[in-house]
Design a protein around this nucleic acid. Sequence first.
DNA 1: TGCCAAACCGAACGTTCGTACTATTATTCG
DNA 2: CGAATAATAGTACGAACGTTCGGTTTGGCA
Lengths: 198, 198
Amino acid sequence: MGKGELTRQSILKHAASLATEVGLDGLTIGRLADDLGLSKSGLFAHFQSKELLQLAAMEFAAQRFIDTAVKPSLSAPRGEPRVKAFFENWLAWPKKSGLPAGCFFIAVATELDDQPGPVRDRLVQLQRDWLDAIAQGVRIAVSEGHFRKDVDPDQFAYETYGIMLVTHHFTRLLRDPKADTRARKAFESLLAKSRKPT
Amino acid sequence: MGKGELTRQSILKHAASLATEVGLDGLTIGRLADDLGLSKSGLFAHFQSKELLQLAAMEFAAQRFIDTAVKPSLSAPRGEPRVKAFFENWLAWPKKSGLPAGCFFIAVATELDDQPGPVRDRLVQLQRDWLDAIAQGVRIAVSEGHFRKDVDPDQFAYETYGIMLVTHHFTRLLRDPKADTRARKAFESLLAKSRKPT
DNA sequence: TGCCAAACCGAACGTTCGTACTATTATTCG
DNA sequence: CGAATAATAGTACGAACGTTCGGTTTGGCA
């Protein structure tokens, strides 16, 4: 990895952190350059526009998410254990991401939902992929006989994502230390109603 | 209501709409003045700072929310019907708010969760009030005998809010037309597990 | 070691930001 | 109706924005 690629990575790491705090729009080239001890133009040269910088930062965060949350879950046993792994690894992901200030994707979701363009498009796709991964895990759990046959995988993913969103909300906005406990309780009852009756 | 108060209200209405789209930070005085055919300074004179404008816009949205979502729910019968009213009125609120582009509070929540100050403080209080209203409705439903005695009202409010957040997310970011249907299904199962066993 | 390209810097661009002043027009009230 | 006051406009400010361009430093390879 050459020197250019090295600084580029350090820029992206900081950009992803900063965007998680102040949003992709609040992310500013001057601020970024100051923090990293670079000149504005020197930093800018790594990307051709701010939009490409935003896209690159999102790609960086996506890669982190895949490495620290998705892949480890996929090595869990098929069925309910893997579904639980998805959930637990998501819960742990803000800490293990190496980025402060919570989940990058939730942080930028609301600011992008009315701003058309490639950045929004990429986020939508990433969200769909993540939801599909959960739904797919549920489908496997059904076929493994862990979950009832009438469980709707997309509905399950929907409700799971709701728990994730509200957990983030309670943790970061309301600073509620019980958020994780409540999250697990909610998810546990989601699991309970999906399991086969004994 | 004098002329000044009249234009002030029209400013706040547009400010709340704009903030829902681009955030409280993306909300700019110049843009606001242009849209309303006012001068920047003329508009600015109504508030002493941008922060006070943001606060006023939030207060405006809060009043709208109270009028169109909270108060009507409180006139529903005590117990489960009122709890359901909270949920249904929340679902309908983005449309009936008179503001486009979804829920004001969710739109500004993530951008404020790392920005200390009076605007954030006010939002936190409003969110707490709303959650408390739901929890209180649940408590009444328990005492009315509609819900089981071991139902945790705060947990119920937590899970309900999760459904609201994910519904907003699916509606606005993913443009999923089935979001409301899924929301009702999720809430219905939340009700089901809270009801007294027959 | 010498060279070329990659990496980075400094200054400046036009624009927009929030805010401060002063002036001018509307509105209200005695 | 006229005077007092409220409401809006005009202009200007310093700072920060994304972006461009020409020049300087640096790293990797012949």
